[in-house]
Design a protein around this nucleic acid. Structure first.
Lengths: 227, 227
DNA sequence: CCAAAAGTGTTGGGGGTACACCCATGT
DNA sequence: ACATGGGTGTACCCCCAACACTTTTGG
């Protein structure tokens, strides 16, 4: 029974919530739309899933196209499927969350001229239901920083404990005790790998440099408590 | 530019991971397929999203059709979109996790005759990629029990602390200290609401009866530690 | 020498585990 | 009386927030 009514036609897209920490703020990658609907409005980067590729692969492809960098953290966030979320046709969108370090070039994609990093606190109303998707992504990122080692995804290949701490403080919007934070992150087995090098780029006594470890979940988790 | 190649046609379905606790086991609701492909194999209940309904609404509709009960906990799990997951055509499926109490009738849906509660430990290979979806759902349920009050979703409207503890022990597969568990769950503000009644259906001294509270996240969380 | 930032040591309190102990019912 | 499970009290332990203190650089 392959009656057409059983298989209503859908378009499937991926939308990306790409977050980074730069200029003391949590920023999202946004593109300015060049076509109707919502022409001229900010939106999340994304695009249609091709026939032969998986949805995950489509998200990875779009991420490389938009950031020019591969190997970034990328995970599925949620799927948004309200009937009228796109006024043109029935579109179901699978949203992904990506975390990126402070990339040198804002964007090097196909729509390079119209893309920018925007602090999430300054984002007003986006096209479609992208405001809600962005909010969901930010909340997911905040939560994941507590019990996974993903804070390092916001840093470069080598970083100091203080730089990592700034990431947590900015993403969570809280102050953290530098001494206890240092003890905590260096104490978790496999979280940070010392490179042997050190730097004094932050002033004061030189700080040891670390690379990202391969830990998945942190135990015990970091907790966002003090103000 | 509405070229057809930009909008490859997809079918969108919802698949349900419906879990319950019965007969000292964590069980999933499965249906036996009556048509090809995978005719005769067990599969997750689900169906096509209709043109005018949201994806979430489709999941809720299917859940009522399959269980005969409304108001159950239901949340999005993940979306599965490999190109060849359905041999007939390109299907993207949005999976949902639902938690149900031990329902009196196994199933009262359209395919009632071919549905059953199956202990997850005895589930072998399901149709499509449903084995993986089920595994993801079970893992999500186990995790959610730690930091939310969702364990009560497996109980009836009124339940004792011991009955709730059995739920946690079965879902997690561990033993829990009855005294500490009692202190913990009754100590979390808003988790359990005493009804004033009591029952001795479990034998021994009568136990106080509780209703589900309206707490979202548990702090401190319950932890699955001891064996 | 002084400021600034990196690390280390110490202490006190909260919460969790383990377990002894009492309570209330059925048989 | 005794078995069975409900519920409370308590001691110990570990973790962690708070903060004093030392270390190492730049100016």
């Amino acid at each position: 029974m392959y009656t057409p009514s059983d298989f209503p036609p859908f378009a499937v897209t991926v939308d990306l919530v790409v977050l980074t920490v730069r200029a003391d703020a949590l920023c999202a990658l946004l593109v300015r739309r060049g076509e109707a609907p919502f022409r001229g409005r900010w939106a999340l980067p994304g695009g249609f899933v091709q026939v032969a590729e998986s949805v995950d692969a489509a998200a990875a492809r779009e991420l490389v196209e938009e950031t020019g960098v591969s190997g970034l953290f990328l995970e599925q966030l949620a799927t948004y499927g309200e009937p009228r979320r796109d006024p043109r046709m029935r579109v179901v969108s699978v949203a992904y969350l990506a975390l990126a370090p402070d990339l040198p070039v804002p964007v090097a994609g196909s729509d390079a001229a119209s893309a920018a990093w925007v602090p999430v606190s300054e984002v007003s109303s986006l096209a479609f239901d992208h405001s809600r998707i962005l909010a969901d992504g930010v909340e997911r990122a905040r939560a994941k920083l507590e019990y996974t080692g993903l804070g390092t995804e916001f840093c470069g290949v080598e970083f100091t404990v203080a730089e990592l701490r700034r990431v947590y403080e900015i993403v969570w919007g809280v102050g953290l005790d530098p001494r206890n934070f240092h003890r905590k992150v260096t104490g978790v087995e496999g979280f940070l790998v010392p490179t042997g090098g050190s730097t004094s780029r932050d002033g004061g006594r030189p700080a040891a440099l670390y690379r990202r470890g391969d830990v998945g979940v942190l135990s015990p988790p970091l907790v966002r408590s003090s103000a």
